[in-house]
Design a protein around this nucleic acid. Structure first.
Length: 129
DNA sequence: GGGGTGACTTTAT
DNA sequence: CATAAAGCCACCC
């Protein structure tokens, strides 16, 4: 089906799919800075699309990964969210190499976060009560 | 067009 | 602070 206008931003085209937008945005993250999945999603107009962002990075193939600084995307609270395996270690090492310091396995988003003023994710959930 | 999936996030116990 | 459960989203079959 012709995907509906998923681009929520007026200056964004929907030709490139959400994933591409994610890649484009991440590609602009300055070296030594990080951003959370939730922030990326929010910037693309999907406040609750953090999970979708993770999806975009998950399907990144090797060649594409070379052009997208995926390691600069971290979980809420500045924690490495990559699943077990070779992931967390590599990401942490890369960030360290860029000057990002870890505090008990976490990153101070107020210092290294590109959007220190923007919440990692809007609080609008209510599992119950 | 329905359903599964997961590099998320938050709230509750 | 650790574990559990539940929303939310876009992509793919």
């Amino acid at each position: 089906m012709a995907r509906q206008n998923r681009a929520r931003r007026p200056d964004e085209t929907d030709e490139a799919g959400f994933f591409e937008e994610v890649y484009a945005l991440i590609a602009q993250i300055p070296r030594g800075r990080v951003v959370t999945y939730g922030q990326v999603a929010a910037l693309l107009g999907v406040p609750r699309g953090a999970r979708a962002v993770g999806w975009a990075l998950r399907v990144l193939d090797e060649s594409r990964a070379a052009t997208v600084p995926w390691h600069r995307v971290v979980g809420a609270g500045g924690r490495i969210s990559l699943r077990a395996g070779s992931g967390p270690t590599v990401q942490r090492r890369r960030l360290r190499a860029e000057g990002v310091r870890f505090r008990n396995g976490r990153i101070d988003l107020t210092r290294y976060g590109v959007l220190s003023s923007l919440p990692t994710s809007p609080r609008a959930q209510r599992p119950s009560s």
